[in-house]
Design a binder for these strands. Structure first.
Length: 582
RNA sequence: CGGGGCGUAGCGCAGUUUGGUUAGCGCGCCUGCCUUGGGAGCAGGAGGUCACCGGUUCAAGUCCGGUCGCCCCGACCA
């Protein structure tokens, strides 16, 4: 491609609306343009990179015998009503009507459509397993799109769906997908870490998020520095911080229990302020209703209960906070004055933090009063200690003896789920098994944010001059800069090498514009093609061209004769580096 | 949806507080000269519904009301 004909409107300054570095650079380098909030057009360079990513995804999907299909973006409402998600996902669905007033939505994901497809045509275990995938544009009316491609309302995603006859089959499909995902991210130059996650609204059991560490990421994960355990913030467990049995009877350190007047002080901040103590000296007593039974959850004042952990611990589906009336019924006091002392017949579950606390503050189960110098074991009994709060930076790793968890920002680039029968049940998608019995498909679903990968690559691979693309994702592999196209020697040598490169199948751009060298260098660095070729002074003086990598910029001089071979060698080395070995 | 901010040339911004000639600046763009190893220089030039609608006024980019768009923080997020 000739730069004089390439549509790559670079900007000297990015639009002020851009916040993230990837948004700024992709806009500045002429890869994308915003069309509306969270909606972007890809210009030639951006589209080439996007397609490169899509191609890698395709190759790896095909390699595990997933089969590419292409489903509609426009979905009839009735499919979404079958799974109840027409209402459940109401906020993010783009809904519209056809001329007959029939309701439709733009697909935010395709479980409904693919399950409908498969239930129509797959009737026997003999046809299983099946993995179908597509690379499609998705629509989600995000409450707050931001960061350019990072969280858009229209974005490109690879979504795959597996259909198996049993759990073993699902496990195989799932593991194949995990392996393929690792290869995909590796080939894109991303170091993606699989982390344990909560399943969320999509349902199902086991699932992994693939996270790329980046300070600008919106997600948070905890990662162990010594054993590599990683989980997202919602899922991350922590090591029990004490040895059992716990000996609490250090009588000498316990102060006498005392009830204090705390008029109208209900929140942690109000109470600690009023009593002049820090939040770490207070224990919050949260009243929950689990399967209709009330229970008390004790959490240190500065921490936050992770409801998913509570739910997992109790093992019952219906867990919710008690409402103010229920709380008054149980504690005889307002919300804000609940405490463990005198709550009889109620299970008392305490976070690990509480085990090591002495002489703390709790509500007194009486309006406008708290207790100070409370000690569990002496003043009330704890039914059990458990890991209940969100893990935080510095907590002990749950999987090894010495490691500490570190809280890191990250970008979610992929997610794999074991769905089980959530969709096949609600949509009545069944096959006949070997034994003649009808069973629902055991499903899995697997997503990769294709457009988000592009943003993530830029986010983790850039410098002050622009993007540093891995060769696999770069819009062009090579960018050639003839210093002066009006100089016949230089132009001649450049054109000659350029046609050799094109002949050899290299994706090359020759910057044949009548621009000053500085402009060409700046654009080349901004766009970030991995290999740069400079033809100028050294060619005039010594017959050498300069070959350099965008990532280190140190040029090596090569004679014009040897240039092509040298470049081809360099190029294959760059690809080699991004080839996974597993 | 709550809080805050912004909208003036392709991009970045000044001007709005205190209404008053023909609305400015930098970059970019066009023409010419000159220049050619990191966004040169000189000269000339084009480009505006001051987001939109309505109101106040002799007079509105500026004041008032409404609408739309965009950004940030929060709530939310398969």
């Amino acid at each position: 491609m000739r730069a004089s004909q390439l549509y790559f409107p670079t900007l000297r300054e990015p639009p002020s609306e851009a916040e993230l570095i990837s948004h700024k650079l992709l806009t500045k380098a002429g890869f994308i343009r915003r069309v509306a909030m969270g909606i972007y057009a890809y210009l030639p360079l951006g589209y080439r990179s996007l397609e490169k990513i899509a191609r890698i995804v395709r190759e790896e999907m095909n390699a595990i015998c997933a089969q590419e299909i292409f489903m509609p973006a426009l979905h009839p409402a009735n499919l979404w009503e079958e799974t109840k998600r027409w209402d459940e996902c109401d906020e993010i669905l783009f809904k519209l009507r056809d001329r007959q007033e029939r309701p439709f939505c733009l697909g935010p994901t395709h479980e409904e459509v693919v399950t409908d497809l498969v239930r129509r045509d797959v009737h026997s275990y003999r046809q299983l397993p099946i993995i179908l995938y597509q690379i499609q544009v998705k629509f989600r009316d995000e409450p707050r799109p931001r960061g350019g491609l990072m969280r858009a309302r229209e974005f490109t995603m690879k979504d795959a769906y597996s259909f198996d006859k049993d759990e073993d089959g699902l496990e195989k499909s799932y593991q194949a997908m995990v392996r393929a995902y690792k290869r995909i991210f590796y080939r894109c130059g991303l170091r993606a870490i699989p982390v344990e996650a909560e399943a969320g609204v999509i349902g199902g059991t086991e699932n992994l998020e693939f996270m790329v560490l980046s300070d600008s990421g919106e997600d948070k994960m905890l990662i162990c520095s010594s054993c590599g355990y990683a989980a997202n913030q919602e899922r991350a467990e922590r090591r029990k911080p004490f040895e059992e049995p716990i000996n609490m009877y250090h009588q000498d350190t316990m102060l006498p229990l005392e009830k204090v007047f705390t008029p109208n002080r209900k929140t942690v901040a109000q109470v600690t302020d009023y009593l002049g103590v820090s939040a770490e000296k207070l224990v919050k007593t949260l009243i929950y209703i689990a399967d209709g039974k009330p229970l008390a959850v004790l959490i240190r004042g500065d921490a936050e209960l992770n409801e998913s952990k509570l739910r997992r611990l109790l093992g019952v589906p219906n867990v919710r906070m008690a409402d103010p009336d229920e709380i008054r019924g149980l504690t005889k006091a307002d919300v804000g004055y609940s405490g463990p002392i005198g709550l009889s017949g109620v299970e008392m579950i305490a976070d690990y933090d509480i085990a090591e606390m002495r002489n703390f503050v709790t509500g007194a189960n009486e309006d406008d009063h708290h207790f100070i110098n409370v000690n569990w074991g002496r003043d009330f009994e704890v039914t059990r200690f458990a890991d209940l709060r969100f893990a935080k930076d510095g907590d002990g790793c749950p999987r090894c003896d010495s490691g500490l968890l570190h809280l890191r920002n990250c970008i979610e680039v992929g997610h794999v789920f074991k769905l089980g029968t959530k969709y096949s049940d609600s949509m009545n998608a069944k096959f006949v098994d070997e034994d003649g019995v009808e069973r629902p498909f055991i499903m899995g679903c697997y997503g990769i944010g294709v457009s988000r990968i592009l943003a993530a690559v830029v986010e983790v691979s850039h410098d002050e001059d622009g993007i540093i693309f891995p060769i696999t994702v770069a819009p062009y592999e090579l960018w050639m800069i003839p210093i002066d196209m009006n100089d016949d020697d230089i132009a001649g040598a450049a054109e000659c090498l350029y046609s050799e490169l094109i002949q050899a199948g290299v994706e090359a751009v020759i910057d044949d514009r009548d621009e000053r060298p500085g402009v060409k260098f700046k654009d080349a660095d901004l766009i970030g093609a991995p290999i740069q070729i400079i033809i100028g002074r050294t060619y005039k003086e010594r017959g050498c061209i300069e070959v350099r990598l965008r990532r280190d910029k140190k040029p090596s001089l090569v004679s014009a004769k040897e240039a092509l071979g040298h470049i081809l060698q360099l190029r294959s080395t760059l690809y080699e580096e991004l080839m996974p070995r597993d």
